[in-house]
Amino acid sequence: MSTPTTAHEILIVSIARLLRGTRHVAVGAASPIPAAGAMLARALAETQDEPKLRLSILGSVAHNFFTNGSAELFDCAAQGRIDAFFLGGGQIDGSGNVNLVGVGDYPEGTVRWPGSFGSAFLYFQIPRVILFREEHTPRVMVEKVDFISAPGVSSEGIWRKGGPHALLTGKGLFGFDATRPGFHLQTLHPGHTLEDVTAATGFRFSHAHATPETPPPDAATLALIRGRIRDELHESYPDFAATLRTAPLPSPLKEPSS
């Protein structure tokens, strides 16, 4: 491959790896990178002859199974039919708590974000919730969130079948241990160091003596991202799709148009 892997492509392939083995993945609105990662996971499952992966991408017509209005996503999750989902967060803390509401004293505060959306429900329901936030800074990765939209863990006796599975940021990939509770740094994206991540993280996390680098996509996977995934993404995220490089043509000659 002549052109090097981009930071976005590292995130997309990381998401696809986290989704391996799932059967139905839902992606919320305004989530181009999770949507791309989920589409890649679907494409890889096909090429590797694994069980079919279904996607429900909110805001898409072509990649969406719902016909019962906006309540169906939540009903579907409650029925145990969604294996993985993505949550972001204006703040994410070391216990996996997510804040989508704002900074400072509620309700006025100093910063107001849109609101909790479905997080206060879906975090309890979906087994593999991937926390995804590209910005990895001390203002996002905080010791304790100012407002709990959705808690990372629940007290004993609280009904819960879902929760955080991983935290993926622009700097690295963390796993989540609900028993501590806390995050464990698994891999560092190319160009990042443990020192750099520690300085950017407001909460304590565990890590190995030497943390491996996030593996880049192989040539075939990269070609999928720059070809099929780019095309599939165009319907819902035309601007983002345009930023993914076009797959190199198989030969210097263009295919004749039919």
Binding site: A78, V101, Y106, P107, S116, A120, F121, L122, Y123, F124, Q125, F147, I148, S149, A150, P151, S154, S155, I158, W159
Partner: peptide
Amino acid sequence: RGLIETDVLAN
């Protein structure tokens, strides 16, 4: 389901 121990519910 859900909502228990959130600040959404608390408010």
